[in-house]
Design a protein around this nucleic acid. Structure first.
Length: 255
DNA sequence: ATGGTGGTCCAACCA
């Protein structure tokens, strides 16, 4: 099974990029974040033509997530239990016996801001939800835009970013708490080229300078981490015309 | 030290 995550920063703008990438990469599952459209505007037929089924959890203007798969999607959940939130940031589905949890973690704006507190509260609620999901599902993946660079290897200039947003100790501890539930960042199970990132700021020619961060992650339960055969980031779509500021992160499993 | 770009939607917010 080949699975990928991609923050597309508006599916309206990026639909043809996503279709092009599906044709070339042929993943079994692709999870999208920041579709920035209401659920009814999601064009399932555009993926149906390519042999994919899909489920969307959309919202006007901001956020919104969708999951696309070669096979049927079942047991869909669009909310974190017990966490009342109008923002559409989660989509859990079961695909081919794997629980696939698609997350768009809040950005947090700046350390100490209201949005930062929301991010930490949101991650705590996700933690408790995932604990329950892991009890119910041996084969589980949590993937998406985490808006957290796990450690300094995932930051182009750790000195400059310091303990700023996306890198602060509290954010990294929140991520560590998720990993402590029994999840592994599969990208780090394999040798990787230095300075491999998944997001580059549109501003200040971030991509040209490779001034990026690795914030798009694939976390696997122990059962799946054991059969993970590859994980990598495909930089190519970030170089396409009018790109998303993120590029796909991919993992492959022997199953 | 600040602002840079891009999406949504047309003023201002979000990233």
């Amino acid at each position: 099974m080949k699975i990928a995550t991609w923050n597309v920063n508006s599916l309206n703008v990026r639909l043809q990029h996503v279709r092009e990438w599906l044709r070339a990469a042929e993943p079994d599952v692709l999870v999208l974040q920041e579709i920035k459209q209401v659920t009814d505007a999601f064009d399932a037929e555009a993926f149906g033509e390519l042999g994919y089924q899909s489920v969307a959890n959309g919202q006007k203007t901001y956020n919104g997530v969708a999951t696309i798969a070669r096979t049927a999607l079942s047991d869909t959940m669009c909310d974190i239990p017990g966490f009342d939130d109008p923002q559409r940031r989660v989509l859990a589905t079961t695909v081919a016996g794997v629980r696939v949890i698609n997350l768009y973690v809040p950005n947090g704006q700046s350390v100490g801001s209201e949005k930062y507190q929301y991010k930490l509260d949101w991650l705590e609620a996700v933690h408790d939800w995932l604990a329950a999901e892991l009890k119910a599902h041996d084969k589980l993946l949590v993937l998406g835009d985490f808006n957290i660079a796990p450690d300094d290897r995932d930051v182009y200039d750790p000195e400059k970013w310091g303990e700023g947003i996306l890198c602060s100790p509290a954010e990294r501890e929140s991520l560590q708490a998720l990993l402590s539930l029994g999840l592994a960042d599969v990208f780090r199970k394999f040798e990787q080229p230095a300075d491999t990132f998944s997001w580059w700021d549109y501003r200040a020619a971030g991509f040209r300078r490779n001034a990026g961060l690795r914030i798009d992650l694939i976390l696997a339960s122990e059962t799946l981490a054991e059969i993970c055969s590859a994980s990598y980031i495909d930089r190519e779509p970030r170089a396409w015309e009018r790109p998303s500021d993120h590029t796909p992160a991919i993992a492959e499993f022997r199953m």
